[in-house]
Amino acid sequence: MDYLVHILILFSIYGMLAISLNLVVGYSGLLSVTHAAFYGIGAYATTLLMINLDLNFFLSLLIGMVFSGGTALLIGLVLSKFKDDFYAIASLGFNVIVYSIMLNWQTLTRGPLGIPAIPRPSLFGFSFFGNFWFLILVLFFLIITYLIARSIVNSSFGRVLKAIRENELATQIFGYNTKYFKLTIFVIAAVMAGVAGSFFASYVSFIDPSTFTMHESIFILSIVILGGLANLRGAVLGAFILIILPEALRFLGLPNEIAAQSRQLIYGVILVLLMLYRPQGLIGEFKLK
């Protein structure tokens, strides 16, 4: 049972990450490879506020969201100058920059030593220390994330995002200053990733920069592409498959080291096969061009 709860917690965290990244990649067509940076900023901000200032998790979470969103605003302003492949490469660069700051600003982050003993959330005297209650909490936030994302994509704003993805110039001709639309969705997605980071830090009770590398960004992107671009349920499905899949490998009886390597290999093969035969993902509504 504990094992299942653990898997579901991870699924919920990655579900939030995938839903938020799908808003940027699937709906807006911006191939961002920097999502792990915002995930990390949320995790570090919440952790440092809880540990250094003894703030409550939920207050730290809120401030962490502001940090993730604020950083995304600055990064997004620079990224708005790029398109297509250049956008992807520049976003990758920002992930590397944020990772380097986490690694080297040792007086703040303790660098590669990481930060241990991160407390679990508590609210009005009730502690979410037990994994089951933590799962209920994180599932609640996954549902909230999903509903907010659904509300966005079903609004006129969501339609404009898709139009930008299809033809930005034509969208502009119809009166939309597309730069602000792209910036807004980038910030919203980063805030959501920050929330996922806060829960991750509190759940594993230890963070270090190695969790928030570009490999993690690519992993989140793989979830989105596998499940389905421009389909929120696809993002959830992708998270479910890619979190469950490595666990299934355990039952093959492979040694841990080989199993770990196999996961990377399987992710790679899945991506290649998808690009070849189903570029919109399993239940996606947008084919990468």
Partner: peptide, 28 residues
Amino acid sequence: RLFEQMKVIDNILIVLTKKDVFGSLFER
């Protein structure tokens, strides 16, 4: 220059909706 991977009706609706970020976010 159409919005290719969008429905025909959405290609027209895009013209009819609010042009600002916040107005469009809350517009159904």
